[in-house]
């Protein structure tokens, strides 16, 4: 039996038909053993990719294709990357995008397909001017209705400067060692470059300010 309900497939097919502009290749790093969530992630993405000609799914093995994994800075699985014209968009999903996070994935796909997002021009300029690496980790649980807001902000920012910025969704229950390391007991929790962190969702502008603060406090 499929993971996506028929009515949702129908809705998504229409959405993709109406809203997708350019093709979006989805890259999934996975492995067969010792990864509880890899197989279900492969399945849901396979079902999703079937809903539009503009979506393709490329599944790679973390061990076998380790050179690729390294290129995309993938150290844990399942890991999802969205591309545009073969170019990394800075968007990462670590762990299965289930529950509310499925909507984060859908939104990211539409943004990447359009090649843009709704961040206003003044913020765009600030994001584009960043010339040092920024790593935005957003810890979530699939049952958290507020989490996609935080994930979206990180992904939208990364997409506007993918050469320097990474926006990562991290499904906390799948990576308990990271939950421990970053002391996550509540979600969403955002950690920027290891030195700035905040809980909850914030307007895009406030997230950009936190990113800039993370960069200046490191100098």
């Amino acid at each position: 039996m499929g993971m996506l309900k028929d009515e949702d497939k129908k809705y998504l097919t229409e959405q993709f038909e109406e809203k997708m502009v350019d093709p979006v290749p989805i890259l999934l790093f996975s492995q067969k053993l010792e990864c509880e969530y890899c197989q279900p992630t492969e399945q849901i993405l396979t079902e999703l990719a079937e809903l539009s000609d503009k979506l393709t799914l490329d599944i790679r093995n973390l061990q076998i294709e380790s050179a690729d994994a390294k290129e995309f800075e993938i150290d844990k699985v399942p890991a999802i990357i969205l591309l545009r014209d073969d170019k990394d968009q800075g968007i990462r999903f670590f762990g299965i995008p289930s529950g509310y996070e499925f909507s984060s994935l859908l939104a990211a796909i539409l943004d990447v397909s359009a090649g843009t997002n709704d961040i206003p021009d003044d913020l765009r300029a600030k994001i584009a001017a960043i010339d040092k690496p920024v790593d935005i980790k957003v810890f979530v649980t699939p049952t958290c209705p507020y989490c996609p807001g935080a994930v979206r902000a990180a992904h939208k920012i990364a997409m506007l400067n993918p050469d320097h910025i990474r926006g990562q969704m991290i499904e906390t229950t799948e990576f308990p060692h990271l939950a421990n390391k970053y002391a996550v007991y509540g979600v969403p929790k955002t950690v920027i470059n290891e030195n700035v962190q905040f809980e909850g969702t914030m307007p895009d502008q406030a997230v950009v300010e936190h990113v800039l603060a993370a960069l200046s406090s490191r100098d």
């Binding site: 809705y11 809203k19 849901i44 529950g99 939104a107 539409l110």
Partner: peptide, 13 residues
């Protein structure tokens, strides 16, 4: 394992 997938994300208008 039991998964659900929310498609309720609001598309950009």
């Amino acid at each position: 394992m039991d998964f659900s997938f929310s498609v309720s994300g609001t598309p950009e208008v």
